[in-house]
């Protein structure tokens, strides 16, 4: 693997983690009695930018390296399901993350100051950020399973 691809993989993982952590911060922020809107918006931006950059670097790694070098090794190894189940699921699910985060961010911009009075919307956003967090965790752990099967 070239240094550039290694860097792409490192960026993909680290920014993915930053994104998931930021979404967790947003989720727990919604659960607090008094939430700080500016911190939630800041975290929303960090999550969105991290997910998009993680998308791009992961996508580059997938197209330039994974398909020809990792996928055949996994499929011929002891854990072919790591690709057929986890990579296949991950490569579709991870498309959702930036859009879900964008939805949270838009809601915060337009309705953020009304959330304390609008309990229904606050609950929906809490649920949405929780779902985004768990999707992010699943995708992260799927990455560990896929990487571990490359032998």
């Amino acid at each position: 693997m070239t240094k550039f691809l290694e860097t792409a993989l490192i960026i993909h993982i680290l920014l993915g983690l930053v994104g998931v952590s930021s979404v967790y911060f947003i989720w727990t922020g919604f659960l607090k009695k008094t939430m700080k809107l500016s911190s939630l918006i800041k975290s929303g931006w960090i999550a969105l930018v991290s997910f998009v950059l993680s998308w791009l670097s992961g996508g580059y790694y997938y197209v330039a390296y994974y398909g020809d070098n990792v996928k055949p090794v996994i499929k011929a190894g002891d854990y072919p399901w790591a690709h057929s189940v986890f990579t296949e699921t991950k490569e579709h699910l991870f498309l959702f993350l930036p859009f879900l985060t964008l939805m949270i961010l838009i809601a915060l911009y337009f309705y953020g100051d009304k959330l304390d009075k609008n309990e229904k919307l606050k609950k929906s956003l809490t649920l949405l950020s929780g779902i985004t967090f768990f999707l992010g965790v699943f995708i992260t752990l799927a990455g560990v399973i896929i990487s571990g099967a490359n032998r």
């Binding site: 693997m1 290694e6 993989l9 490192i10 993982i13 680290l14 983690l17 854990y79 992260t140 560990v144 399973i145 990487s147 571990g148 099967a149 490359n150 032998r151």
Partner: peptide, 18 residues
């Protein structure tokens, strides 16, 4: 923790990930 897992992957110690 994830840096450690990544290091294991890049250095050829993938079995640690399972």
């Amino acid at each position: 923790g994830f840096a450690f897992l990544l290091h294991s992957r890049l250095e050829g110690f993938e079995e640690r990930l399972y």
